[in-house]
Design a protein around this nucleic acid. Sequence first.
DNA 1: TGCTCCTATTTTAACGCTAAAATCGCGACG
DNA 2: CGTCGCGATTTTAGCGTTAAAATAGGAGCA
Lengths: 334, 334
Amino acid sequence: MVTMSDVAREAGVSVMTVSNVLNERLPVGAPTRARVLAAVESLGYEVNLTARHLRAGRTDTVALIVPSFHDYFGEVADEIAPLVEAHGRHLVLERTSASPEHELEAVSVARLQLYDGVLLSVAGMDPEQLGRVRTSKPIVLLGERDVPPHFDHVRLANEEGARLATAHMIERGSRRILALGCTLDRAHMMTSDRRAGWESAHREAGLPVDERYVVPIATYSSHTARTTLLDVIDSGLPFDGIFAATDVIALGAVAALADRGLRVPDDVQLAGFDNLEVSSFVPPGITSVDPNHRGVAQHAVGLLHRRMAGAVGPAEHVVAPVSLVVRGSTRGGR
Amino acid sequence: MVTMSDVAREAGVSVMTVSNVLNERLPVGAPTRARVLAAVESLGYEVNLTARHLRAGRTDTVALIVPSFHDYFGEVADEIAPLVEAHGRHLVLERTSASPEHELEAVSVARLQLYDGVLLSVAGMDPEQLGRVRTSKPIVLLGERDVPPHFDHVRLANEEGARLATAHMIERGSRRILALGCTLDRAHMMTSDRRAGWESAHREAGLPVDERYVVPIATYSSHTARTTLLDVIDSGLPFDGIFAATDVIALGAVAALADRGLRVPDDVQLAGFDNLEVSSFVPPGITSVDPNHRGVAQHAVGLLHRRMAGAVGPAEHVVAPVSLVVRGSTRGGR
DNA sequence: TGCTCCTATTTTAACGCTAAAATCGCGACG
DNA sequence: CGTCGCGATTTTAGCGTTAAAATAGGAGCA
């Protein structure tokens, strides 16, 4: 590896002069500067950022740590990247291992030290693990779980979104609406909050809440959603609407409905949550709760940058508003 | 920040003893070890990886650099991550800026020094930019472009995949097949190679190649694909099949066909390329060329690890085989 | 008692960089 | 002609860690 002192020797100057030429910190005489630049060029020198980071005590880099790289998280990451870059920092993504026992390891506190700030997506991390994370590093948590109160946290209005979607289908005539991918758990997490919204919509409309219509699924994949819904259909439980806890689940539902020849929205209305890009292209267009990625990203990055700039004060807990995007999978959508 | 010397002072030992306790390099007496561990615990010490990396001359980290985080790249990244981790290294993702003028900057050679090896996705990078990247750092290029010959490179059998998909539709009765998102360019890149495959299939079947059926699109989004295809339909150009250069494009095509009431596969057969997860769920299931992500990931990571282990020798240029996954969007699919 | 040989621990030095202080060289000025 | 001033350049020191060499402190043995 070519180091600054190689360049210095080649140019016949001290390392500080090389540093000064490259960083334009102290002025350097024109002939010296030229010799240094020539040496840099001929040796192909590139600064060693690890050394610079150690010396500077910062890395100008923010990490976004997510459970996996695809779908929802990929889309959020693409919103976050430009915001981080706008502050002159780099964004890198890291993935927590899929297996829970490795999760904490991947988020080993030591690794956080590599970054000036961290956006940590808490989907699939339990609060107890989080409690063990003690660090002075600025961290903003992101995601649909209860978290220890001393962390900054940005989450969605899950219950409100689910309520909106369900109320919309009720208003358009559905009376038996599955809550696919939701759970009856009381713990505040994504699947229970969205179930609560589904429930609220029923209460507000004066409709009974039938727990048989809450259908949890084993894994949050389209594939599992499809097979789970096929089982429900085949069980004979009558339904005329589906609130899918995520668009990935909604996509599996679309497939299952097609498998059984049920028409959307004529036989069954369908609404999802996340407003993934695909949802507007899958015919007839999937009505979905827009999680307002951009707003979430702005809140989270803004908060993180304030902390990195040294802002103190109590942890902030932001609940980002959501909205319903109506498409062809519910009646009245285009 | 708590450093090793804080721990050493607290425990009444030298920093090296702390280091030896934590790294288990040299044996440390049991009582001393206990005092050190207690000090680590009470101060909440975490090793500074930047310093360790500088000292060690390596970071045990591999970067995957992609144009954006979603769709195709997110899926590839999820395949690559476990392979990299299996070698005891970390994977991080970085994104090249969307704007071409910043691309090289994001891939600034200096930044590559942070990693022991780099997987660089070359979609949207021109070869001339790549030529300027001189570094001894192991790099494996990934993607559907011609690249300077001294780089290791893993790419797909684009032409073969397109040929398979097109031949399949011809065999199932299509005679006028659009090549949506393809280009007539001669340069070897994804869009021209896939067009070449479309062409080969026609020649092999003894069908004429009509260049009006090659329909380029301005940006590789589902939205653009949808509006572009709507224009084609409205222009009155007759067609009974579509080969979409990517599944993202195919998705836009599905939407456009539905917009105009054309049935898939009865009126128009459709095949895409990439076999995205969504493609199996969008009714009636999109026939697609499977890019064999896992195989590509294995080739690329294997090659990179060999280089990181010091393997020398001429650059390898791997063309990973692809296969066709037949679904309901072509006749005879389930 | 004196000496060797281990084992436990410490000292030294370096990874590559840069902030701050020190030094050098030279023209200007009293 | 000595010295002050000032820009150009170098020296010093240290970021936090760890490999390698050095040292201290006993146990074992003649």
